[in-house]
């Protein structure tokens, strides 16, 4: 290793001689190589993003689109924002937050549990590990349909297994609230919201599992051995060694999953279309666009969500930058 070192420095000096032209040539080449991708992203993502802001200040219906004059900025209005940010928006925001935090936390707990199990040695472990990924890799549309059939109020296997028939049957995805007897008291639970949270946790716990397993396998085993010698029981080893070692991965996972779940659209749209108290903001935007045919309000809400996203991404970047140092 040390013998080779002089070579490297000589080579570095060699290139630095022609630095000006070499660097300029490299930079030109770099722009050329990036151009196709950059152009695509500019046209398909950045331009619409910016244009969305303009749309959000215009009164546009879905039916006006073909005859719309896009360069007419004379009728700018704030009405889309005042219409969009109504009580329905605040309810949607509350639902979205409950849905996002609930399913993120559950997915991480499920992922941690799965990772702890998958780390153990047992026959068939490789197949088990592959099984764990099924919910995550299968197309969302088929998983949503499978669960919808299983959770069907009248023909679903879940109600059948639980012995709930007729009046007692639970509309897992269709009833806003269901009365349960808990400790002798009737408690109304937002059953549809709980079900979509459970679905989301089911679908994304494998993602958390993969990250956590990778981190678990990187914990040096001698820590555990010395803890065992010191008389720490398995539960103590889990609580005082494993969990602290995973803390930063868990925090990163929480942020990532929070962001992605907050902006998730397909899952709830396909499960029950945002009915029965599950209308998250992304579904609300879709409904403004295609049920109410109001492009302006939909874009205004899109702008609101985009601003929230930028804040979240900055938080995420600060966090990962801090983690790396």
């Amino acid at each position: 290793m040390t013998v080779q070192q002089p070579d490297v420095t000589i080579e570095k000096q060699g290139t630095s001689k022609g630095m000006g032209t070499m660097a300029a040539r490299d930079a030109r080449l770099a722009y050329l190589l990036i151009l196709p991708g950059l152009g695509l992203v500019l046209i398909i993502i950045l331009f619409p993003m910016v244009w969305n802001i303009i749309l959000s200040f215009q009164e546009i219906g879905l039916r006006d689109l073909p005859t719309l004059n896009l360069l007419d900025f004379s009728n700018l209005t704030l009405e889309n924002y005042t219409d969009g940010i109504s009580s329905r928006f605040w309810i949607g925001l509350r639902v979205t937050l409950i849905y996002t935090i609930g399913s993120t936390v559950l997915a991480i707990i499920g992922g941690l549990w799965a990772a702890l199990v998958a780390k153990e040695a047992f026959p068939g472990r490789n197949i088990f590990r592959a099984f764990l990924l099924f919910p995550y890799i299968a197309p969302v549309i088929s998983t949503a349909f499978i669960w919808r059939l299983m959770l069907d109020k009248n023909f679903g296997i879940i109600n059948a297994v639980l012995g709930l028939e007729g009046q007692e049957a639970i509309g897992w995805l269709t009833s806003r609230s269901h009365e349960f007897m808990i400790f002798g008291r009737e408690v109304g639970l937002p059953i549809a919201l709980i079900t979509v949270i459970a679905f989301e946790a089911w679908r994304y716990f494998p993602f958390a599992y993969l990250f956590l397993l990778a981190r678990l396998q990187a914990i040096p085993s001698d820590i555990y051995e010395s803890a065992e010698v010191d008389g720490a029981a398995p539960s103590q080893r889990l609580w005082y060694i494993t969990i602290p070692q995973l803390r930063s991965v868990i925090a990163t996972l929480f942020l990532l999953r929070f962001i992605w779940t907050f902006y998730k659209f397909e899952d709830i749209f396909l499960l029950n279309g945002g009915a029965a108290g599950t209308e998250v903001l992304t579904v609300q935007i879709f409904n403004w666009l295609f049920s109410r045919r109001n492009v302006g309000v939909a874009s205004a809400l899109g702008v609101v969500l985009a601003i929230a996203l930028m804040i979240l991404v900055v938080v995420y970047q600060r966090w990962t930058a801090e983690e790396e140092t």
Partner: peptide, 27 residues
């Protein structure tokens, strides 16, 4: 700037992009 842009676009939700894209494609 490119690194930051990659992250932002990666995170950007489809539903927000799709509104202006829809209008854009119709036009």
């Amino acid at each position: 700037a490119m690194n930051w842009g990659i992250l932002l676009i990666y995170m950007f939700p489809g539903i927000v992009i799709s509104i202006p894209l829809f209008v854009f494609f119709v036009r």
